[in-house]
Amino acid sequence: MQSLWVMSSIAMPLEMLEAIRALFRLRASTRQQATFVAEAVHYSATGEQPHALGGLALEVQRSIFDITDTDVIIIPALWRQPDKYLADAQPLLDWLLARYQQGATIVAIGSGVWLPAKTRVLDGLPATTHWHSLAAFKAMFPKVKWQHDHLLTQAGRIFCAASINSGADLIIHLIGLYYGRELALQVEQQFSPGVRNPFEKRVFQADSAMQHADEPIALAQSWLHQHMNELLNLTHLASLADLGVRQFSRRFVAITGETPVLSDASHFGRVFQRWAAVTPGTYRNQVRRKIFVLSPTSQ
């Protein structure tokens, strides 16, 4: 059965990496070079070229088995359940496991998480996938700690994204790790800055236990991370910690060094700049509104 890959989960990472190359070319005076080769390679038990959803054909030059050393492997999403297409994928799984043991970082998007899960390197570790595949993957891989409330997970050198947009967040994060936050922010702003939140604030990490032993405050922090786009209710947060509002506020500040809510504009500005690396005013000028609606008074 011919596999159907989701084109955007392949194209977006390649385009973001190419943007890095373009930024280096613009900085020719610094003589910096983008020290990477990004290419699409494929696996096929029958020798067929891969195809993408919508009837698009993917023309790739090399087999995946031509790659014996690599730093990052990005696994795109397959349409529907991968086990239908990859029943005879043991050579591919062996190759993936060998590259991981060699030190490669794995980035799996959507149903592409099936591949590292199938190699068993995710056993006992957190992972996420597209909601359509989640129930089936839970049944197939019961030892994986599936995170249904998170769109991003990290377990050492294995990153999982539940959706294509979340996969873009992972690529931005990796660009920051390899080439610095400044270049990562430039690429991010080029590829839809109004959508993304910082990777570190959204990911579930295997080693992300709060760096303190105050369990009630850690519980409140976890709730904040999972509901960061909702209106904050201090009374509700205090109830989660089984504390009074004043006691909770004092304890939260003492433990984390931050207030549980943004109580004033100056505090918001400081926090925003720490997250986005620009002031709210600069960000507002850089990002256009998503839609313009003609109001009745302006007609």
Rank of each mutant, 00 (worst) to 15 (best):
A168R: 07
I175S: 00
P91R: 02
L26D: 09
Y179I: 05
V6D: 07
M228V: 01
A40W: 09
K145L: 14
V245F: 03
S8P: 04
S163M: 02
Q147F: 07
D83V: 10
G176Q: 12
G55E: 02
M16R: 02
S192I: 05
I172L: 04
L14F: 10
A34G: 14
E188L: 15
A139Y: 10
S298E: 15
A34N: 11
T235S: 14
G180T: 03
S111Y: 00
I74K: 01
W131R: 11
G47C: 00
S9Y: 02
Q247R: 10
A218P: 03
V72F: 11
Y85H: 10
A238L: 11
V113F: 07
R274V: 11
M228E: 06
D94N: 14
S208P: 03
T129M: 06
L219S: 03
V187H: 04
S111F: 07
V121K: 04
I10T: 15
P13C: 13
A209Y: 08
W95M: 13
E215H: 02
H225G: 04
A87N: 02
I67Y: 11
D214Y: 04
E258D: 05
F65L: 15
R251D: 04
W5T: 13
F292M: 03
L14N: 12
R274H: 11
G54V: 13
